[in-house]
Amino acid sequence: MKILVCISNVPDTTTKITFTNDNTQFNTSGVSFIVNPYDEIALSRAIELCAGGKGTVTVINVGESVTEPTIRKALAIGADDAVRINAEPRDAYFTAYQIAEYAKTTDYDMILCGRESIDYNGSQVAAMVGEFLDIPSISIIKKLDYDGTTATIEREIEGGKEVVSVSGKFIASCAEGTAVATIPNMRGIMSARSKPLQVVEAKEIAQISKVQQFDTPPPRGAVKLVPADETEKLIGLLHSEAKVI
């Protein structure tokens, strides 16, 4: 069995988000980058499925060489090898296209990724890769079992869940529940350095979307405190001032 796991290089979750150049660029100065937390869940599940010699896990990242520490982290968690597609991942369409083009050149049973990246929150890549490859894409899954040919997947839906079964190649985007993110151990960190990391060049595709400007939410006014024994006052404010109940 071979599983491809797409990983995205994103700002650490504690990052204070600021912009430069007239709010046209994300300010990366002083920001540390991590494996997208949802991708870690996907990777951890892939490693579990392949444990005991049942298969191998290849991580794929679309990024310039600055993302290599993040790729090494994924190798330390337990991926067997890595592929970096050498390009700035300018939007989900471009990124998904590169992943799909790479997947066409290799053998695999499934592709896993996180439900969304925590920077652009697109939730786009998985379904786009699925469409480029004309294979099923199951978005926002919380459980994945695989018997060697058929996957049984639980997917989140509004107010519940859905169980889907897929035979043959597919791509799924993983959310919490699918696995608990594995923390790399010392042996993993040591061996990560010598695991293969292949660099392939990106393919050209027309650009159809571009972030022109960033904006931050307006600051909120000061909090109105209500004494703990006057809860009826809070209800009153929510009703007649905020008009939300």
Binding site: P11, I17, F19, I118, D119, Y120, N121, V211, Q212, Q213, F214, D215, T216, P217
Partner: peptide, 9 residues
């Protein structure tokens, strides 16, 4: 964008 910390136009 950035999980509600910003907007991207």
């Amino acid at each position: 964008a950035f999980s509600g910390k910003a907007f991207a136009i």
